[in-house]
Design a binder for these strands. Structure first.
Length: 119
RNA sequence: GAAACAGGCCGCCUUAUCGCUCCUAAUUUAAUAGGGGAGGAAAGUCCGGACAAUAUAGAGUACCGUGCUCUUUGAAAGGAGAGGUGUUUCGAAAGGAAUUUUGAGAUAACAGAUAGUACCGCAGAGAAUAUAUUUCUCUUUUGUACUUAGGACAAUGUUCUAAAUGCAGAAAAGUAAAGGUGAAAAGGUGCGGUAAGAGCGCACCGCGCUAUUGGCGACAAUAGUGGCAGGGUAAACCUCACGGAUUGCAAUACCACGUAUACCGGGGCUUAAGUGUUACUCGCACGAUCCCGGAGGGUAGGUAGCUUAGAUAAAUGAUAAGGAUCCCAAUUGGGAAACAGAAUCUGGCUUAUAGGCCUGUUUUAUUU
């Protein structure tokens, strides 16, 4: 099993990210929102986002982003596909989340994504 | 031992597994080994400094900062100690009172309100060139009551005139003493004085000015003098003194990519349009394939700056076990753990902070 999460699997270009926000499809499950768009390389690329308006404290924002990244890292296989996709995973709640609940929500989100993206 | 105050420090630890980031090493092109990886405030961005760019031709204005004294520390901002003054709390003393002296604290953006402007809600007559539709007082005058004196008549009464006194009203003044309003009412208390009053006069207190003395100084004491003009706000503008080039790492340098000397309108081509220079003015420099405006197009990736933390959609994390701390139950167990996340570095200031430790001072309990 591959649980690594190197730099090549992260979405880093500001131009590409704003493009996904504009043109990408959306899937929602409880407090998670996933933007996705077919990518340029064979690998998946992902980026996490927490809106400043919902979570004003920098400490809490950092924590939520780390938890989201950890959830993705441990459940990467749920998003397995033949093509590479670019994702943005956004947290819409305003409280500090529980990691186990978030993992279950993420797995459900992945099922929805598989159906809508037709993979 | 406990409580209060002041100052300082710490602000969970260990192991394993999975993962992130930077550096080094060697094999070699996707993996291995070793090492480093958030804070006392990283925060607010309120003051300094380094560094960078602009300018180096300066001057004035504007703007900003600081504001009792001395010593000390520091590159500066700032800090520390000692003192002075004002305000204020508690206690003591003197005095009839106003007030003064003194002991122990607290506190002050603590230069200037006799340069000018502005503001001072409500209440109140009046809030700054003081003042009345209250009260008080003199004078004049009207009415009335009573008394006295004189006269007339129809005579133990009636009536007229004059004067004094009381009451009520009016006019013209005096006064700012009393009541009342207010955070604040144009020196305070007492005595004299006056029609009533008033620094109008006097005593004491306070205040201003001048001189002398003491102190490095802020200031203080003493003497003389002035009858007292001049309320408060400068964290309102402002004035004075001292200091300050401006903009900030999204600075800036280099590499890569890419384009348009296109088009439209206007100005100018040597009697100067314009650009740069510190916000403005002057001055200075540059100045013809030029300048301004419109509409439109392209780029916005990387390296250095940048750090024995050093990223760039931004690492410093997750899970499990064990152990300290605190709380509830008191056998086993269950729960809690603050404020808060680096972005060029650095010195301060301010604000947030569960819990714990140490030192000192004061009060108090117990034991000897």
């Amino acid at each position: 099993m591959d649980y690594s999460f190197p730099k090549s699997q992260r979405l880093k270009s500001a131009k590409r990210i704003s493009h996904i926000y504009r043109k990408g499809q959306k899937v929602k499950q409880s407090s998670l929102l996933l933007f996705y768009l077919e990518g340029e390389s064979a690998e998946h690329k992902i980026s996490v986002a927490v809106p400043k308006r919902k979570v004003p404290k920098a400490v809490h924002r950092n924590r939520i982003k780390r938890i989201l990244r950890e959830v993705y890292r441990l459940n990467k296989t749920e998003l397995a596909a033949t093509k590479g996709f670019d994702f943005i995973l956004m947290y819409l709640g305003s409280d500090l989340p529980d990691q186990r609940k978030l993992e279950q929500a993420f797995i459900k989100l992945c099922e929805k994504w598989r159906n809508s993206a037709g993979v």
